[in-house]
Amino acid sequence: MEQEDLFNVGGLALRSRLLIGSSGYPSPQIMMEAVEASGSELLTVAIRRVNLSDTSGESLLGLLTSLPVHLLPNTAGCYTAREAVLVAELAREALETDLIKLEVIGDDETLMPDVEQLLQAARTLIDSGFTVMAYANDDPVTCRKLADMGCAAVMPLASPIGSGMGLTNPYNLALIRELIPDVPLLVDAGIGTASDAARAMELGYDGILLNTAVSQAKHPVQMAKAMRLAVEAGRFAWRAGRIPRRRYAQASSPFEGRVEATPT
């Protein structure tokens, strides 16, 4: 029997290589169904102020307890290392997990990371015992620094968050994988449809983190399933090893024994 291809990250051994976000679904019910259809075992959540004007409503956490997922809190919305570290500490206290998806955003238009603040926050959090999964630019140097520092996973973007543009720089993503063979790498942000996820996996990435591509799809539950299959297909293809590209055709059927019609 084929050995199970588990994804080990931050002390977890996951069967699914698809990490999914919990934001922006048409309804909580559809979110639940989509997460289930995705097969994901690691679900991202944000840390936000409790709504003090109404503490009666069903909490997200209450809803999520029925799902077989681990929670991955994020530091979304943080612009400085200081903010990100505080949010991570609050997340650890609230959710009793050392896992943190570290995001330190540089500007509102691109939502790209502020590298200086990101590296500083990653260092502080690792020193405080956090298991850091760092959302990064698709820059081999930054990714290498995060990996060397001891991040549990480094997660370069395919294209800006929520843009759905897919892999805008597959060359960089391939380089990052080649240069960092020893630390889990995920493509986080920018995935638009299933083929984007498959393509990233075919580059040898360990996993995909996405949210909008599913939550804002016309049919989120169906797209969640499509993503699950795409991530699996891409992973299989990577492990199987693709054929080299050639510039000219090469017949698949043998030349020998072919039928020759008599010239008339």
Partner: peptide, 25 residues
């Protein structure tokens, strides 16, 4: 920390944040 909630005193001018998990990506 939760264990300190019953001991930690709030003082004049303090800023308190109460947070929880919400939908996020």
């Amino acid at each position: 920390r939760r264990a300190e909630w019953s001991r930690a005193l709030v003082n004049d001018g303090d800023r308190v944040e109460i947070v929880t998990a919400q939908q996020g990506g």
